[in-house]
Amino acid sequence: MTPSVSGAKTAHSPERREFLRKAGITAILATLTNLDFPVDPASAGETSSGIEDEQFLAVSRVLTGCRDLDPVLSRRLRHALTGVFPEQVRQICALATTLDTNTTSDLLMTDAGAAHDALLTVNAAWYIGSVRNRTNAPMVAYADALMYRPVRDALPVPTYCRAEPGWWSQTPPLDHIASPETDRAPPPPPPVGVLGSTPRQSAIIPPAGRSSFSALPRETKDTR
């Protein structure tokens, strides 16, 4: 057992969390530099623990409230997150033992303690298919991202056809629109369809082909 695992059982200081965050970014850096992020366990030759996969899936199902999460997707998501946030994934798996009593998402969150942020990370990943706020982050789900489920009676998953041409002129479902969940207003949404201001960039090295234009030597062969 590695020291970091034993450390996972104690609450972390903010410094430790910051360190782990940076470690996560470093991991993204390393993987993207190689363009070789192992989101496919089979291709990565992972020695994945079946128990951890089961734990991760079980906690995810309670957390998201979705009983039908795909085990294959879960395994790939756990693997991808382990590459970036190994500590958080361990925290999630550890929560599997609490599921007898934490039978709902709310109970799980209330009882999360130090794993609170980890749960939000994993929850977000299930909903959006990758980690939040990371440019060019690895991703594992598009149409299977859970964010499309609460609206599937009304909206297509973009890029996929929904029904015969012109279907959208029908009246959409106008019921089941809840009241706001909280008085707090989140930050405004980014404008759609344009680049308002360049979004926050994670500190990553540009993939190949996106070179800087500052000081490149002239190597052209002008024969004339």
Partner: peptide, 28 residues
């Protein structure tokens, strides 16, 4: 159920047929 297994994975880990299915057929 292939979508769950392939989405986001490196292009060269998918067969050419799988890739083409997703590109050209799956939209409809």
């Amino acid at each position: 159920h292939m979508e769950a297994a392939i989405r986001g994975s490196r292009v060269d880990t998918r067969t050419h047929g799988e890739l083409l299915y997703s590109r050209e057929c799956a939209s409809c």
